[in-house]
């Protein structure tokens, strides 16, 4: 469904250029959920933005649904994939109601039966009709993220890109959103790429997981490998150990204060 070969993204900032993504390659099969984990500065979100065409990139292959994905995309090509952003407080237009936000993609693509589709989308993500005419500031973080998911899915794209969709949310709300995503993925047979810094979240939702560090791909492992710790790279091992919590190692260089 998604083919990426030798993807590179370079940002130019004044005189300096930053090679944010360096030669990443992977494939995602239809119906699969592919995870990308890494720490800040690993370039994981940039990979997602490059696939979405939001940042300029170079690659030998970048295909979505068998079609090359250029930076400039036609309206029809835009319908192939949508993105859910990290911060539900920044991803919704502050002066538009939920209705206006969900209506926008339908109007752009000239879809019929807009009202019915908006109502269906609201119900799909577990919101109520009473939420339809609220402004984002009248919704909680979890509700906002539901609206963002509804907006992403309202055009029924086969591919959904998720950029840290729950990292701004509380644990209990995160559970609701992750369950919702799992259900929607099932009912719409979505192909997903999930980017996160949280190994447990990625292991929960994904089949295969790419580990990234400083713009490079470290390795691609299965969720089962991640859980059992059967990994080859030291960095992955370190990341897993750190994610399991704090370990009170016998301190060698102890702090001495005057």
């Amino acid at each position: 469904m998604i083919a990426v070969d030798d993807l590179n993204v370079t940002f130019h900032n004044g005189g300096r250029s930053i090679h944010a993504v360096q030669g990443i390659s992977f494939n995602v099969a239809a119906g699969e959920t592919f995870g990308i984990v890494g720490e800040s500065g690993s370039g994981k979100s940039t990979v997602l933005k490059a696939i979405a065409g939001l940042v300029p990139s170079t690659s030998s292959v970048l295909e979505v649904d068998g079609r090359p994905a250029a930076r400039r995309r036609s309206r029809a090509e835009r319908r192939l994939l949508q993105l859910v952003f990290q911060d539900p407080y920044a991803s919704l237009h502050p002066r538009q109601t939920v209705d206006g936000i969900l209506r926008e993609p339908l109007v752009i693509h000239g879809v019929a039966d807009i009202d019915d589709k908006v109502m269906a989308a609201i119900a799909d993500v577990g919101l109520l009709p009473m939420h339809r005419f609220r402004y984002p500031h009248q919704l909680s973080g979890g509700q906002r993220q539901r609206v963002a998911i509804a907006r992403a899915l309202i055009l029924r794209p086969p591919v959904l890109l998720l950029d840290e969709p729950t990292s701004a949310l509380d644990v209990s709300i995160q559970a609701e959103i992750l369950n919702l995503l799992a259900n929607l993925r099932q009912s719409y047979s979505l192909t997903c790429i999930l980017v996160s810094h949280d190994l447990a979240v990625v292991a929960h939702l994904c089949n295969r997981i790419a580990i990234m560090q400083l713009g490079k791909l470290v390795e691609i492992i299965s969720a089962a490998d991640l859980r059992s710790g059967t990994v080859t790279a030291d960095y992955t091992r370190e990341l897993i150990a750190a994610s399991r919590g704090f370990t009170r190692a016998p301190s060698q260089n102890q702090v001495v204060l005057s």
Binding site: R79, L83, H93
Partner: peptide
């Protein structure tokens, strides 16, 4: 640069829109 404008770009909105 904000996410909600990026979201509309992804939906295929024209620059004028």
């Amino acid at each position: 640069g904000s996410d909600f404008i990026q979201a509309v770009v992804l939906q295929g909105a024209s620059t004028r829109r």
